[in-house]
Design a protein around this nucleic acid. Structure first.
Ligand code: MN
Ligand code: MN
Ligand code: ZN
Ligand code: ZN
Lengths: 138, 138
DNA sequence: ATTTAAATGCAACTCTGTTGCGTTGTTTTG
DNA sequence: CAAAACAACGCAACAGAGTTGCATTTAAAT
C-alpha cells in the first residue's frame, strides 16, 4: 500500500495537513465517509470549506470516488485501483444506518444498452438493504 | 393507461388539486423530474412544502420512484408497473444536462452477491454519460 | 532566501428539504 | 344534506449540505 504523501505528489497536489489527514482516514476505511463523518473523524478542526474543497480535489484526481446516499448526502471512498484499469464496482447502502460499503463485484460497461445517440461513461450499481448489524438487531 | 383520479383512489390518497396536477405531469413525462422541475411545470403555484409532501406520499405509495442525481437532487418518475411485479430498471443520467431517463433494461436482484449477514431489498443501476442532445452539440 | 501559485480560513450566501401549527377541504356517516 | 372526522394545505421558521469571493498563509519552485 502506497504512502499518503507519495499519492498526493503523483497527482500534483500540494502536501498539506488537511490532505494528509483526510486521505489517511479514507485509506483506512472500508466504508464511504461523508463530509460530516470526516470532520468528526479528524482530530484537528479544519475549516468546513477547506474540507469540501479537499474532497473535490481528490475526486477530480480520481483518488476518491463519490457515492450519493438516498438522502442526497455525498460519501467518499478511496479508489484503490489505478486510473488505468478503472473498474465499475457496486456499493451496498444500508437503508437503516445509511452506511455505504464498497463491494468487490464488478460490472462491464459494454453490456448495458442505452438509447440511440447516448454515450456511456460509467455505471453505478447500488444494492440497497440492511447491513449485518442492522439485520441482526431489529 | 389509468386515469389520475382512479390511481389516487386505489392508493387511498385524497383527490386534491396538487395531487392531480403533479401526477398528471409525471405520467406524461419520460424523464425524472425534480421538485424544482415540477414547480416550474405546474401552472398553479402550490406551496413548496405541499409539493414536497405530495412527492413523499406518492413515493411511499409506490406511485413514484425516486432517483438521486449526482448533485444530490431527488428526481421522481412515475412507476408504470404495478407493485406486484416490481422490477429493478436502470436509469441513464446525463453528466451535462443532468436529465434522468428511465431505461427498459431490468436487473434480477438475486444475482447480486453481498457480504455475509446482509439482506437485499432493491438494486439501483445508474448509467452515466451524455444524452443524445448533449453528445451532439459539444 | 525570494518568488509564485496554490491552498487555507472566514463570512456570507444559496438551495433542498424538514417541522410545527393553525386553517381549509375531502370524504364518510347519520 | 348537514355534521363530524381526519387528512391535506399554506405559512413561517428552521436545519443542513454545499458554494462563492476574497484576504491571508503556505508549499514548492527558482
Ligand atoms: Mn466504492
Ligand atoms: Mn425509473
Ligand atoms: Zn446498517
Ligand atoms: Zn444531456
Amino acid at each position: 500500500m502506497k504512502g499518503v504523501e507519495e499519492i498526493l505528489q503523483q497527482h500534483s497536489l500540494k502536501n498539506t495537513k488537511v490532505r494528509k489527514a483526510v486521505l489517511s482516514v479514507l485509506m483506512r476505511s472500508d466504508k464511504g465517509l461523508s463530509h460530516q463523518d470526516l470532520s468528526r473523524a479528524l482530530d484537528v478542526d479544519f475549516d468546513r470549506v477547506t474540507l469540501f474543497r479537499t474532497l473535490h480535489a481528490f475526486e477530480e484526481s480520481g483518488i476518491l470516488h463519490k457515492i450519493m446516499d438516498p438522502n442526497g448526502i455525498a460519501k467518499y471512498a478511496y479508489t484503490a485501483r489505478p486510473a488505468a484499469d478503472r473498474h465499475c464496482h457496486a456499493h451496498f447502502i444500508c437503508l437503516d444506518c445509511g452506511q455505504v460499503f464498497c463491494l468487490d463485484e464488478e460490472f462491464p460497461l459494454g453490456d448495458m444498452k442505452v438509447p440511440k445517440g447516448f454515450s456511456k461513461t460509467t455505471i453505478d450499481v447500488q444494492i440497497k438493504g440492511y447491513c449485518n448489524k442492522c439485520t441482526a438487531q431489529d
